[in-house]
Design a binder for these strands. Structure first.
Length: 115
DNA sequence: AGAATGACGCTGA
DNA sequence: TTCAGCGCCATTC
């Protein structure tokens, strides 16, 4: 489809997150005009085949923690490693200083427009 | 079709 | 601060 599937819209926005910065699932949902669909953003990222060019690891939950889940088969720990590699301190429980590395797109409205 | 299931988020205890 | 409960909604059973 012309506007792209939900998954593609999610990935497209996530690709805009600069290295070393963080966004939340709910934030991504809002940016693609799907307020309240944070869970679906999680589903979209889960469908990525790893490794992926999409910086999915820069998306965490609103509580500033990496979403740990058995169903992720270790990708949650990989996420922790990738973030640490980008200079973001993540403790053993997956908690990180979200407020300090929060991504704030200068022109959010431009993200949903096709180039 | 109906129920269960989350890579979520917010509120109140 | 941590935790349970609830609303949310596409996907999966």
């Amino acid at each position: 489809m012309a506007l792209g599937s939900f998954d593609q819209r999610v990935w497209r926005v996530v690709e805009r997150i600069p290295p070393g910065q963080l966004a939340t699932y709910g934030q991504i949902a809002e940016l693609i005009g799907a307020y309240g669909c944070a869970r679906q953003v999680g589903w979209a990222l889960r469908r990525l085949s790893l490794p992926s060019p999409v910086p999915w690891h820069r998306v965490v939950n609103a509580q500033g923690r990496i979403a740990m889940s058995l169903s992720r088969e270790g990708s949650d720990w990989i996420q922790r490693e990738l973030l640490i590699a980008e200079g973001i301190p993540v403790d053993a429980a997956g908690r990180l200083p979200l407020a300090r590395y929060r991504w704030q797109p200068a022109a959010p409205w431009a993200l949903v427009v096709e180039h």
